[in-house]
Design a protein around this nucleic acid. Structure first.
Lengths: 217, 217
DNA sequence: CCAAAAGTGTTTGCTCTACACCCATGG
DNA sequence: CCATGGGTGTAGAGCAAACACTTTTGG
């Protein structure tokens, strides 16, 4: 036990420039020069795992605006060379506009389909997080976690299209999202080019996960 | 780190006497007399988490016949009194007929709807594992993991009904399970009372999870 | 008045659901 | 031959998919 290190790592997703991006930091391990890795922190003796994940976010992002969910715990003895490390991995969705970097000299956002060389098995971890995110979108409405508090339906649809990697029908998308009852309209409009768009917000009283059609309803 | 204990615990499900049951062991913590807890093991320095979970099963069950999946990692500082324990929890489905107990004097199977007093938050863990199991049944076909290698469709349906806690239509159930393509028939029949039943088995080449209707197909 | 993006309904096909009777065997 | 559980099809309803034009604003 005493020689097992316990870490958390966080896959931090954000939308930026029409792409889903992940925050990476240069790998500190000397065996992985010119590699990148997921932000992580050792777990302190008196903090919860989620707090440790919050620390990995903090300085980078205001933790309160962030959706955070545990992804998986990796603990193969050979996952890291030289050390036995257990890593509890979380994934985070941070809303567009909250992308503040306190250490821009080190860290970088990378689009998920153009990742640099990654240390350890972090490429596999990101791939799994992405699979889970896509899956979440399909049976819930997690997409707005990547948008500001208020957003138009077109922005939400665009978010879904970026993450799922496919085009969606506008009318069907709107009907379904509204029928699910997870967002509500606001009195506000966003002006830009063309006709202004009505803004919507997440309904705090909505259940988090909308069950899609089940195999045995 | 050095004062954080790393354990695995396993929620071991099995079908027995028309009920879904969980294997429990008397709580060893002196602060929880007359309580029960989930079987667990400390993680050794050179073994994977899954191997540790396998150790928690072994002696109890032949590990190879067991479906094992990571559930969640619990690590609140106050989850256990006096110690800081991180617990990686797995859940296991063991096929009917493989319920061998090597330590019957200590351990017991309890139906999930008649659990004894449980130590720590293990009642919450079991409830979560049960939710996940039900959910798995709804969008995949995990039910046969609780049955022997070969089973009749009625037995499979019965399994689903026990776990989901509701009755299912026989014809619709059969049609859907067969259409999903995850099981195949065998030349064998099981004789009993009434007309003999055709036996089926899990198709090894089938994908593990059958996606149900998605929100955005 | 033109460009740009927002917003809006209907028809068609498919899938899910509900439902009742005959079949094969053992005793 | 009777009791017991195994096995089978169809009609109707509800849901999802495909699809094109009108509306509102800014320049």
């Amino acid at each position: 036990m005493s020689d097992i290190l316990l870490n958390v790592h966080v896959v931090i997703f954000s939308l930026y420039q029409d792409a889903l991006q992940v925050l990476l930091t240069p790998c500190s391990d000397p065996g992985f020069a010119d590699c990148w890795e997921l932000p992580g922190e050792p777990v302190q003796e008196d903090e919860s795992l989620e707090d440790a994940a919050g620390r990995a976010l903090s300085g980078r992002i205001d933790r309160r605006e962030v959706y955070l969910e545990q992804l998986y715990t990796y603990g193969e003895p050979d996952w890291y060379p030289r050390f036995r490390i257990i890593s509890v991995v979380y994934f985070a969705l941070i809303p567009a506009g909250a992308r503040r970097l306190s250490r821009p000299e080190h860290e970088r956002w990378y689009p998920v389909n153009a990742l640099p060389h990654l240390a350890f098995d972090h490429a596999g971890v990101i791939a799994y997080a992405l699979r889970r995110l896509r899956y979440k979108l399909e049976y819930s409405a997690a997409g707005f976690q990547l948008l500001p508090d208020e957003f138009s339906l077109s922005e939400l649809q665009h978010t879904y299209e970026i993450i799922l990697g496919e085009e969606l029908d506008k009318r069907n998308f709107r009907r379904r999202i509204l029928q699910a009852g997870i967002i509500e309209d606001t009195p506000y409009l966003r002006s830009g080019e063309g006709r202004p768009a009505r803004l919507y917000r997440y309904r705090l009283d909505a259940v988090a996960e909308v069950k899609a059609r089940r195999l045995f309803p």
